[in-house]
Amino acid sequence: MTVAPAVEAVELAKHFGANRAVDGVSFVVPSGTVLGLLGPNGAGKTTLVRMLTTLSVPTSGTGRVAGFDIREQPNDVRRSMGLTGQAATVDEILTGRENLKLIGGLYGLSRKYVRETTEYLFDRFDLTAAADRAAKTYSGGMRRRLDLAVSLLAAPPILFLDEPTTGLDPHSRSGLWEVLRDLVREGTTLVLTTQYLEEADHLADEIVVVDKGRVIAAGTPTQLKDRAGQASVVVTLTSAADLDDAAELMRSQSPEVHVEPGSRRLTAKADGLGDMTRIAAVFESSGIAIDDLGLARPSLDDVFLHLTGHRAEVLPGADPTTQGVPQ
């Protein structure tokens, strides 16, 4: 049996006058997986999500959500998905609880269901203590969680998230990632947009890189990293005194060895795990003590630079050394 994909974009395009915000984008999201739409500001990610969630009418092309056509069956699409927009669109004057009551009323859900589900979601998202406070008193992270609770009230099988962690501090961000991973474990399909490579790398099964309204690359995070160039084996010695011996040893295994003078670290181009285990075995038998040995793939940032010619955004508060920030 073939299973229909949860979300599908078919040559989707949206033109605002001469501006081709989205210019023929296609992708498929299998049920129960996470698609990351990655791209810089203004790449067309939000417009894509707005079209797939029926907020914006495509100039051409179409899409399907839960098997329903976004042009022909918009109300069925709206019944099958939840949306958490870029600006947390909660009603600031209503309390957290009232926000869910409002949306429950608009879905036509029973009062009993809304009451019980609100308890459940607030408990899960750590909002119970703030449930009866006006949403304008919430912190950024709480607002996002409330927005997410609102989107999840009707337990949609498919959830769209437009830059869900933009503007959040690192703590709130990792909390939200946790929540999203739980949803995926329960079988929810996620489509999320992000400017952050780290976020796409953490959450997405499949990444579609968008720039200037077009898809410039697609694949799993590993596939994309492989495209940016070769992997390498990085060896950290216990003592810097062994540097020359170690370099000679590695040259016997790899044609291109790089030694960082004054450090304990050597790098060798490698084709993959096979090369790594071979080098590990050679060190094992040589008796040179090592602290660490590992395979380093190019970061997604290298991929991004390679594909778009410019660097991606760096997560605010992230450790720059793990992000490959230009020096």
Binding site: A4, D76, R79, Y107, G108, Y120, I158, T189
Partner: peptide
């Protein structure tokens, strides 16, 4: 149909009865 597509989530989907214009406006 939509029910064949989604693997059963832990939470059961509620009955969604799209509201009439009157009920939605009243909300």
């Amino acid at each position: 149909t939509a029910t064949e597509i989604a693997p059963a989530p832990r939470r059961i989907r509620p009955e969604i009865s799209p509201p009439t214009l009157l009920r939605a406006s009243a909300t």
